[in-house]
Nucleic acid binder design. Sequence first.
RNA 1: GGGUCGGUAGCUCAGUCGGUUAGAGCGCACGCCUGAUAAGCGUGAGGGCGGAGGUUCAAAUCCUCCUCGACCCA
Length: 1023
Amino acid sequence: MQRTARRKATIGISSNSDIGIGPYGDSLPVPVLTSLAQIAVALRILPMPPNTVDYKHTLMLPRTSFPMRASLAKREPKLLKRWDDLGIYDRLRQKSGRPSFVLHDGPPYANGHLHIGHALNKVLKDMVVRSQQMLGMDSRFVPGWDCHGLPIEWRVEERYREQGIGKDEVPVLELRNECRQFAAKWIEIQREGFQRLGAIGNWQAPYLTMDFHAEAVIAAEFMKFVMNGSLYRGSKPVMWSTVEKTALAEAEVDYEDHVSASIWVRFPIDPEASRDFAASGMPQDAAVLIWTTTAWTIPSNRAICFSPKIDYALYEIRDVPEGNWARRGELLIIAEALVDSCMTAARVRDWRRVRRVTPAELDKLVCSHPFRGKVPAEEPPVNRWDYPVPMLPGEHVKDEAGTGFVHTAPSHGEDDFLIGRKHSLPMTHNVTEDGRFRSTLPIFGGLEIYTSSGQEGSANSVIIDNLICSGHLTARQKYKHSYPHSWRSKAPLIFRNTPQWFVSIDKVLDDGKGTLGDTIRERALEGVLRHVKWTPPTGMSRLHSMLEQRPDWVLSRQRAWGVPLACFVRKDADMGSGDYLLRDEAVNARIVRAFGNEGADAWYQDGSRERFLEGLYPPEEYEQIFDILDVWFDSGSTHAFALRDRADGTEDGIADLYLEGTDQHRGWFHSSILQACGTTGRPPYRGVLTHGFTLDGNGKKMSKSLGNVVAPQAVVEQHGADILRLWVAQSDYTSDLRIGPAILKTAIENYRRLRNAFRFILGNLHDLSTDQMVELDDLPELERWVLHRLHELDQKVRDAYVRYDFRAAYVAIFDFLNGDLSRFFFDIRKDRLYCELPTGIPHRATRTVLAILFNHIATWLAPILPFTADELWLHRNKGEDSSIHLVDFLAVDDRWRDNSVASKWKSIRRIRRAVNAEIERQRDMKAIGSSLEAAPLVYVADQEVREILRSVEFADICLTSQVIISDALPAEASDINPAPEVYVEFRPAVGEKCARCWKTLPDVGTHEHPAICERCDTVVSQL
RNA sequence: GGGUCGGUAGCUCAGUCGGUUAGAGCGCACGCCUGAUAAGCGUGAGGGCGGAGGUUCAAAUCCUCCUCGACCCA
């Protein structure tokens, strides 16, 4: 309806003198509708007159079975099946003479469904694998899974618990088998999910850390640390879960808010034990005030730390409420910056600063424990608190919270441990693995710190009660702070002193692998700096600074599901002595062989100690170690069993690329480089690519509670894997990636444009045979320009893929297809494609270029959109064995490169834009609709450019019926100052509209077919 | 609290060694076409570059501080 109204308006204007006669005077009235009947037809009031031929049938309109709607969710599984049947991955391996490229898969943990982060990671990997292959490499990808470890063991235990079975009642081999089954189940689910994303690889034979071979290699790799002397057994406070009854690795710890009872406790000065006390002038009854959030560590206190950088002072309490813990007249040493908060907490109404207390004074002081004298002297010393509590300087002490004094229990804190070691403080063993005080401890024996379900036990309150009784508590307050929790059980953790196995990363290794350095740390640091290419480059400093600071590697876990630290220790030897750890290649070989055949379960079989030692050492003199290895050791060893030992690994056991999220600087990149530097002397990778994390559409972390989680499965089912992949390609993976409905919409829209542009190409290629293609020399200049652009793009796209810059590749392709082709080339050439004689050179020339474009662009897209690219490919390349994924990026012909054509067409497009602008103005004024109604006059000041315009079919290029290139600036523009470089004057096209090509030309009506132009007349008569 | 990184139009991103009026695509608005049609084409409106200082003739680009977000660590 609207259309008719507009037509009316146009005619109305044409009858008006402002356009019809116009400023030029000599123009014909517009539009050229000369009879009522024509008007009626134009208005769609009357049908086409019976004597008018419908020339539509004489056109070569696009024809294709390539659907506009992708229906990716349905189509993709079919393509996957086809690729599987074809064995694409294996076929690619048969291409010989190619340099090898191996992206080594970082193994995801085999529990739970895939989330969007998994999908991002695997899609990026796939883009690398596919693009490297198409760049000419033999690009292999062996997917892997991380199978051992606490989360799986925990889930299996949970199942037992649901049946009312405690974990200690389950035989270890049965438990391990359950874990194995559990992992296997999730591997299947995840494998299917990854494959659905289009990831290509050796999915038939992935590597698993629980494969027997892998378990044997992991044990063998561990033995290298046994043999090179870097393994030692030490005692260390570690994060300990009283629920899981195990030490946790850093990666297994979550920090969450937790409310603790914080207490201020006075430690009376012991004048007897302090040095030079008499001369110090310090009052005998002064006390040092400490603050702690872990009351349960008080019985294990061995020192108090102060900072030499903090100002301290002695304060006298002058006024307190009745019955207050802090007493009137009391003398306390406190950091000056914290005295206000301390006094407030202690409800002190008035106090006085007596004098400054210097670090030198503090250094000489010794305090007594609040529980001194509580236990009868008959008890052994280890059960009494009568020991001196020295004051020690410590850099870790801050004056931001508390009192400026840190109560120090060497067995229950990292800093405490270091200070304790430095000053030879005794380690205490007061807390057992179930989170209770040892039963032999007076007063508190058997009290729970945290219960087996993670609740707070009675230990804290009993200790606080005792402090109140003995008059040592000054204040208490609830304190909310970030506190470590188990990532699995969410229970709060404690620091607990436990025997653990460590790898010393600063021990000089005499293993003949010292090219990069003598210690693991030196080698890793040197490797990071000089032997790894980082994408983006910032990854380097991140890993480097972590490696610089990290402490020794704690390898042992007191769990069941993993590879044991397969070694023996002498029962009668001291932990520090040289013969404590059994180092024997023959024993090791037995163990590795057994693991290879039976898996690490062999370690847990009855009689395994005898089996491995018999004939070599007296078994009864040795203790078998049943701790298992940190799972990071497993994954840190993947290079050994997945690269070094596999035929489809790499020759030197080194990967070309590791590709993971930035969290893996602490994780896999880290454990792998430590492991490899200890066993091979260098990093296991030549390149590392890191990507950011996935956030929701607003840049917030995804969480179930916020309901902003985007599941990859949902995207794939709704829109298709190619849409998800396009989202990856259009994002900058070096920082965090956002995903949400609006962002996916962008990907969908862009996908449609890509698809439709290809549909147009396919539609115009439908019956093109190779013999119709024309030679380069026969191509019109516009076609030559397109090939020039294609040549440029080829370099750009390849460079981008080499840099793993998929976004740059995608943007280049998309902009070319959109900006240069759809909007320019296609629009202009529709006339030739539809109207010219199919056997003629102009028609064939354009189609030749379309065919070339199709092949190149489709292959460029294949690493990003493997499904759509192959769907496209199969429309042009039928055949049972055909697939775009079996070809490389196509070579370009260097003759396509023509910089003179390029600069020429740059000018042409500039002038064309000016013409477009003028036509748009006329449209706004309702003077014309289609640009074919125009025949503008174009003046260009530069004569060279004028010549260029005359040398091409500029009217076609502007989509106008005719164009006049003028040497002179039209009179009405001559007063514009400064004189315009380009001036376009609108003129209506002269003549009648050709019923076939719709151009308005003067010769229409003078040919055999009266309704069409000369070109069309010629074409039609030859059809 | 510390380390690393990031914050440019509604969205996704460019922006070289500091140098005209900060760019592109998508989306949006308006218009055209109806022979790429649940398509295609054109035109346009949107930001002053997270904030505040500073260096400089000149800062989105360099420096300092702050803020927000992410990862890692405490």
